[in-house]
Amino acid sequence: MRANTVHPDPAETASDSIVRTAPTPGFATHKYALILRETGKYILLLFFAVISLMPFVWIVGIALKTKKEFYEAPFSLPAVPQWQNLATAWDIGHFGEFFLNSVIITLPTVVGVLICCSLAGYALAKIDFLGRNILFYFFLAGIIIPFQAIMIPLYYQLRDLGLLTTYLAGILPMIALGIPFGIFLMRAFFMSLPVELIDAAKIDGCGDFGVFWHIMVPLAKPALSTLGIVQFIASWNAFLLPLLYLQKQSLRPLTLGLLYFQTRYESDYTLIAAGITIIILPMILVYVLFQRQFIEGLTSGALKG
């Protein structure tokens, strides 16, 4: 109902029970115009919903068809869903391996970013030390540095450190790239907490780390989950970084694995579609289940950055 209830306007209350914000008072009395308007709204929404979903529906459809069906009736639903297409793609595409690689790379990255940024964000927000502001701006500057600015020397640096084509080449730089935004977010959060909390805990005999671990971290859960989601999406979907630093088949994450799979079986549409389906369905499922957390995390990430 929103603010309309604040100013009850006799000319509008009738229409307001149907539509939340009525157009001009005269307009609302025309019932047909109102129905037209409402219908138009839903046609528009449904049209774009179809546009958003169609590519995925098409891909999943192909994945469950026989080759013959795909060539002969591209838009019909599969007569008998060919589930074994998915199994075949899973086997010959090594997707199990790639999935595991994605987990091995993403999990430590997310944990690493959470640890580094909560510690540093706390220090920058609540501990008074010399050079605090300079250090904060030093970290903050990283937000506007694109990966392209460092990717070339980093390649040779990782090679010289002996890290190239090891999991660490996908993990350590990824954590480092997530640090600027993470510190920005965590510092802002810790700044919003009252100092009295720390003082009270210290009087109770808590050390610096005790205050951080027992008082601050539990309070910071909302900020930590936002940061965790942002970092999870960034690492799970990363492409250029693993393309450069993980050039070995046994290390490939899902994104790279799918790309090589697609290049290799280029003409086999049902197989490629099956590969894509295997990767996107779990992702979509997780997203739909936690859509609120995903959307809020990713948009507040953008709004605060």
Binding site: C116, A123, L124, L135, F139, A176
Partner: peptide, 8 residues
């Protein structure tokens, strides 16, 4: 507190 982030 800053060391891990700073080093990386």
């Amino acid at each position: 507190f800053l060391a891990p982030a700073l080093i990386l």
